[in-house]
Amino acid sequence: MAADKFPIEASHIMMFARSVADDNKIYYDEDYAKTTEPGNIIAPPTFAQASAQFDPNYFLRPKIGEPWFGSGKEATGIQRDGSGGGGGGGGGGGLHAEQHFEYHRHVSPGDVLTGETKPGKTWEKQGKRSGKLVFSESITEYRDQNGELVITARGVGVRTERPVDQ
């Protein structure tokens, strides 16, 4: 996830907290948040993932005027080769294998972050339920408006040879 500008906004935090069924008032009630130790509305632990909304090139968001691989008239809007494209477009595809966050500071509405992503290691493994697995790591550093590192995120994606056996 890369974002030149990831503004932390109260209503986005509220919607995100609702979506993970977290009714902690620190995520939406400013008056309550003032009485807590952080003293402010803060973002829930996995909120940095929502920087996808601010990544202009994020490939799992439909873009105006561009083909989209989800269903419309047909089961997919894009014909892909069978080897499994981004996001599970073909037979197998990409799945999220691991996610790690390190919090240097908890962010609040009004913070404006940047996210810079660098590729990490890649490795392979033979899976019992999905054939050959290819893992790739990416590291995103989120910095605030003062250039201070606030969150370090490390994600690991995996491409499977075929859909995971159930």
């Binding site: 979506s19 993970v20 069924a21 977290d22 902690n24 996610q99 390190e102």
Partner: peptide
């Protein structure tokens, strides 16, 4: 990340708000 987000709720309910230093999972 939805499961990780909901799991995060359990953790912050336990440790308190703004206390988390690290959180990582394998799916």
């Amino acid at each position: 990340m939805l499961s990780m987000g909901m799991t995060g709720r359990m953790i912050t309910n336990y440790v308190g708000d703004g206390r988390l230093k690290k959180y990582g999972v394998r799916f």
